[in-house]
């Protein structure tokens, strides 16, 4: 830079007068624009196809009809009842399954005897999809809330158990040695090192379990109930209210999406040292 050009000029000279920044900025702006157009484009196309006469409008209603059905759902007051019923099932199932999963995961992760006792059983039960339990759950619990809770707990438990178990096992042995050298008593190792070391894994397991609790909710509400978003979808299907069905699906997607986002925001705070 002996000739007195500034760094920016130098870069401009070397790249033949075109800096690379303006190009990448233009590209980024284009991407944002396309991203903003994605949903409206999709909805518009849907509206056009539905009304074009190429498909049966009763089975494939346009977005405007779906929106009207959703508004009616909300206005009638049924939506709030359905939402609360579904949220209650998901939340209690998530909490009960999560707590059980964490406790047993610590137990099997930390104590080899417990692992030998329980892991084979859990590994056999874990791959059975919770939906497959619907028939026997109806036999056991009838149409009660306990049956719904059982299904959600079942789905959440194994995910959280496995991630906690792995998390506890994967705690850096070096940290435990360092803690031992600093006079940490073995009985305090769990609270001082193991739990915090496993926390990132536990949080990942819990986050996966959020979506799983919604999957199992579907099975639970199809198993027979009197309120709930999935229940409403099923009733609407029986009455051929396709707009209501699609509105229900959208509501379920939205609730599940919000739950996942809330949990990931919470998770970031839980693992505070990252």
């Amino acid at each position: 830079m002996q000739d007195g050009t500034s760094a920016r000029q130098e870069i401009a000279l070397r790249t033949g007068g075109r800096g690379r920044r303006p190009d990448s900025a233009r590209l980024r702006r284009l991407n944002i624009l396309v991203g903003a157009l994605s949903l409206p484009l999709f909805v518009g196309l849907w509206e056009l196809v539905s009304r074009s006469g190429a498909v049966n409008m009763v089975l494939f209603p346009p977005p405007t009809v779906v929106a009207a059905a959703v508004l009616e759902w909300i206005r009638s007051g049924q939506f709030l009842g359905d939402l609360l019923a579904s949220l209650f099932r998901v939340t209690t199932g998530f909490i009960v399954g999560g707590v059980l999963g964490i406790l047993l995961g610590i137990l099997t992760g930390q104590f080899p005897v417990m692992s030998s006792l329980l892991s084979p059983l859990f590994h056999i039960l874990r791959p059975i999809p919770p939906i497959a339990f619907v028939p026997i759950v109806i036999l056991w619990f009838g149409l009660s809330e306990a049956g719904k809770l059982f299904l959600v707990v079942w789905g959440v438990f194994f995910t959280v158990w496995l991630s906690t178990h792995i998390g506890v096992q994967k705690v850096d042995r070096g940290l435990i040695r360092a803690a031992l050298m600093l006079g940490t008593p073995r009985r305090q190792m769990l609270q001082e090192i193991v739990l915090l070391g496993a926390l990132p894994y536990i949080v990942v397991g819990l986050r996966t379990a959020v979506s799983i609790s919604f999957y199992t909710l579907v099975a639970a509400e199809l198993a027979g109930t009197f309120a709930g978003i999935v229940y409403r979808i099923e009733i609407a299907q029986q009455n051929l209210q396709t707009g209501q069905v699609m509105g229900g699906l959208a509501a379920l997607g939205l609730v599940s999406f919000i739950a996942d986002r809330l949990f990931s925001a919470l998770a970031e705070r839980t693992v505070w040292w990252r």
Binding site: G174, A178, A179, M181, P185, Q188, E192
Partner: peptide, 28 residues
């Protein structure tokens, strides 16, 4: 505790600040 050890890897507790890492031993 009268024998201290420094390992090849620092093995610091990632969830503790520098101060609380160092204070861990005396706390224990």
């Amino acid at each position: 505790p009268d024998v201290g050890m420094v390992f090849q890897q620092p093995h610091l507790f990632p969830w503790k600040s520098v101060r609380r890492n160092i204070a861990h031993g005396p706390r224990m």
